[in-house]
């Protein structure tokens, strides 16, 4: 329930304009890639979109639900391992593997969310982190599927028997379609009565409870949806790199996902989109310049926290004023 006022129109137009520009640019990227190092541009673009999907899923619970999950990378790993294991077992077709990956992520989200949501504030941060570590160490002991060395995929998933994702350009558009679909679905979700209730629970849980809403249930459903969506991102990531390892779930990865959402501006969805793109582009540029790129990246992160209000989306809003 955002404050209505003269600001709303401006924010609405930004909410339409930013994703529109981004998606148009992405759709044209493979064409532009013809004139440069094509394989590199396509793989970077695909990676950007996959992390954008993960960041959007996190924004649902972080920005709208006020749940600071520090273990979201676990879902990347679960989706990734589902892809890897199913391909390994010869059942890698997208039509079977993707729903199974989503089901596994949803199950993990429901089980860990059920315990985590009972805690408040900082304990929630720590317990989500701990559950992700649990998944991380579990993956390390999966000796049948590579253990700590990780698991290479023999091939990308097919789609209904067709090698639709084998070609990098085709895979790029598959990912783009999934991202656009997920973005639209999330937009509808946050505007729906459920999404409104979720935001209200963040703002005033006591009042929502007094009005008869089951606040824990609302949060748990949002958490499960978010985890499932992030599992899709993990599934795609494993297919892109044709490799999955416990490092998918490393807690630094969870921190990076939070950084993407906050860098872009949380609670807007398109902010998460923008944040993921900006984060990975920055990482790409800095790591090209120096192996110690984190020495530059860390201070930027601290400055964004100390100075930045509303991330990139907030900055764009102020520039348009």
């Amino acid at each position: 329930m955002k404050a209505a006022g003269p600001d709303t129109a401006r924010r609405l137009s930004a909410a339409i304009l930013i994703p529109l520009v981004l998606f148009a640019a992405l759709a044209l990227l493979p064409l532009a890639a013809q004139f440069g190092p094509k394989a590199y541009i396509l793989s970077l673009g695909t990676r950007l979109m996959i992390f954008a999907l993960a960041a959007i899923s996190l924004d649902l619970i972080l920005g709208y639900g006020g749940m600071v999950s520090f273990g979201h990378a676990a879902f990347l790993g679960i989706g990734g391992y589902a892809a890897g294991i199913l391909v390994d077992e010869g059942r890698g077709d997208l039509l079977l593997a993707l729903p199974l990956a989503m089901a596994a992520s949803a199950l993990f989200a429901a089980a860990t969310g059920y315990v985590s949501i009972r805690t408040r504030g900082v304990a929630f941060i720590m317990i989500t982190l701990a559950f992700a570590q649990m998944a991380y160490f579990f993956a390390n002991t999966l000796s049948a599927y590579g253990g700590s060395d990780g698991l290479s995929l023999l091939a990308r998933s097919g789609v209904a028997g067709l090698p639709l994702m084998k070609n990098d350009t085709a895979f790029f558009y598959v990912v783009l379609a999934i991202l656009a679909l997920a973005f639209g679905a999330c937009r509808l979700l946050v505007a729906s009565p459920f999404g409104q209730a979720l935001e209200a629970v963040r703002q005033n849980p006591g009042r929502m409870a007094a009005m008869g809403y089951d606040t824990d249930r609302i949060k748990l459903i949002a958490y499960a949806i978010s985890g499932t969506l992030c599992g899709v991102a993990g599934f795609l990531l494993a297919n892109q790199t044709e490799f999955v390892s416990p490092s998918y779930m490393a807690w630094q990865r969870s921190g990076e996902l939070i950084a993407m959402v906050v860098l872009g501006g949380m609670g807007t969805l398109h902010g998460a989109l923008l944040g993921a793109v900006a984060f990975l582009a920055l990482e790409e540029i800095l790591s090209d310049l120096t192996p110690h790129w984190r020495l530059v990246f860390g201070p930027i992160l601290i400055l964004v926290v100390l100075m930045g209000r509303g991330g990139l989306v907030g900055l764009i809003g102020r520039m348009r004023r």
């Binding site: 600071v68 520090f70 941060i125 921190g255 939070i258 950084a259 906050v262 984190r294 020495l295 990246f297 860390g298 201070p299 930027i300 992160l301 601290i302 964004v304 926290v305 100390l306």
Partner: peptide
């Protein structure tokens, strides 16, 4: 706090 101290870890 989480984000800023995460930045400090990286540094």
């Amino acid at each position: 706090q989480v984000l800023a101290t995460f930045g400090l870890i990286l540094i």
